[in-house]
Amino acid sequence: MTELEACNSCALNNSAQLLKLGINVDHADFVIALAGNPNTGKSTIFNALTGLKQHTGNWPGKTVTRAEGGYRYKDHKIKLIDLPGTYSLLSTSQDEEIARNFILFGKPDVTIIIVDAARIERNLNLVLQILEITDRAVLCLNLMDEALRHHIDIDERTLSRELGIPVVKCSAIKKQGIPELISTIHQVAKRQIICKPHRIKGLSRPAQKIVDKLDKKIRKNYPGLPNSRWIAMRLLDADADIIEALKNGDFNLLLA
């Protein structure tokens, strides 16, 4: 009974917004997004989670439209959305817009961020941006076997502490780490793990001050907005989409 209630409050309340983005979540308990750089084996993870339903490609920018799939875990129906692989969410290319809008307006229950373990510095660019938008995420260190072959290992506990989200090591092509990934996703979705995501600190001090000023103003106007700081940064960057969302009222979707 309690479990049912928990689910009523966690996933379905956002179904109207998801429907607007073209996702039907009528029968799903949780909606989970899959994000990551191109060439990180994102689609392999997708296939490992859902079964063979989508092509995996060693090519940047393969999935421009979203691919959807689903799986069951502990009597929960889980809907998985594969977002286009992007290096960032700051430019205005079509695929970045799709990925950004889904994480921002679709508010998935969990965002899995796939990272190439041998190239984490470069991949963290996207990770840090996603963590500014959502506070429910799991980092999946994929291609661990390849990294180890090249003498690179990752201290996942330190990484988890630094980022404030759970980190799971995987090697999707060898089907290693997938069960751990599934159970971690579940724990985050059910709020058994509460994330305290990293916030970008590297801005210059004057810029930081201005961001804080705008952030404060946004929070005053929109109390309870989870990603006000990120919105502040986007407004300072003259992001036309965000300005438009503010003007036409789509922005209110971000609340609650």
Binding site: Y87, L90, S91, T92, S93, R122
Partner: peptide, 11 residues
């Protein structure tokens, strides 16, 4: 413009 942002994103 887009060129600059792309280069920055790529690191």
């Amino acid at each position: 413009g887009a060129n600059r942002r792309r280069l920055l994103d790529l690191g």
